[in-house]
C-alpha cells in the first residue's frame, strides 16, 4: 500500500503523517493523531458529527481523502477550541444553555458554530439555522443550541 506524507497544522501544532492517500481525514485525526474528539455518526456526510475546520471552513472529515489535504493546511478540531477565546466562549455558552445532551453531535456542531461566529458577528436566526443545517442532533431539538450560539455571539471578542 503506497502512502503519502503530509504536514498539517492541527489545532496550532505541526503534525507530519504518512498515510494511504485514501484514508479518511476523520480516521487520520482519530487514529493517526489520536484526536478522538471528532466523531463518526454516519460516514456519509449527512450527520455532521465529524465536522472539522479546514483552513477555517467547516467540512465533513468522513468524506475527505486525507491525501487531498495539502501540506500546510490548517485543521481545527473540537480539541483546538479551548485554545481560542471564541472557542472558550462557545463552550461556556453551550454549557450554560444546556445545548449538549448526549453530546455525540457536539464536537461537530460546535465547530459549525465557531465557523459561523468567526465570520458573522451577529448572525440572525436564519443564518444560525442555515449554518448548522449540516449538523444533525437527535436529542435537543436544536432549540438550546440556537440559544447558545446567540449567547456566544453576544460575548464574542471584538477582534
Amino acid at each position: 500500500m503506497s502512502t503519502v506524507k503530509r504536514t498539517w497544522v492541527v489545532n496550532g501544532e505541526r503534525w507530519t503523517v504518512d498515510l494511504p492517500p485514501g484514508r479518511r481525514l476523520l480516521d487520520a485525526l482519530r487514529n493517526d493523531l489520536g484526536l478522538k474528539g471528532t466523531k463518526e455518526g454516519c460516514g456519509e456526510g449527512e450527520c455532521g458529527a465529524c465536522t472539522v475546520l479546514l483552513n477555517g471552513e467547516p467540512v465533513t472529515s468522513c468524506l475527505i481523502a486525507a491525501g487531498q489535504v495539502p501540506d500546510g493546511a490548517e485543521i481545527m478540531t473540537v480539541e483546538g477550541l479551548e485554545k481560542t477565546e471564541g472557542g472558550r466562549i462557545l463552550q461556556e455558552a453551550y454549557i450554560e444553555r444546556g445545548a449538549a445532551q448526549c453530546g455525540f453531535c457536539i464536537p461537530g456542531m460546535i465547530m459549525s458554530s465557531f465557523a459561523l461566529l468567526s465570520k458573522t458577528r451577529t448572525p440572525d436566526d436564519a443564518e444560525i439555522r442555515e449554518a448548522h443545517a449540516g449538523n444533525i442532533c437527535r436529542c435537543t431539538g436544536y432549540e438550546k443550541i440556537i440559544e447558545a450560539v446567540k449567547l456566544a455571539a453576544n460575548r464574542w471578542p471584538e477582534k
Partner: peptide, 28 residues
C-alpha cells in the same frame, strides 16, 4: 477523477460504486 469527494467517497465507502485501482485528485 476525484474532486471534493462528497459523492465518490460515499459511493466507495458504501459499495454503491466499485473501488477503482487509481484515482486522480483534481481538487488542488
Amino acid at each position: 477523477p476525484l474532486a471534493g469527494g462528497t459523492d465518490l467517497m460515499v459511493q466507495w465507502e458504501s459499495g454503491v460504486a466499485a473501488i477503482p485501482e487509481r484515482a486522480v485528485s483534481l481538487w488542488g
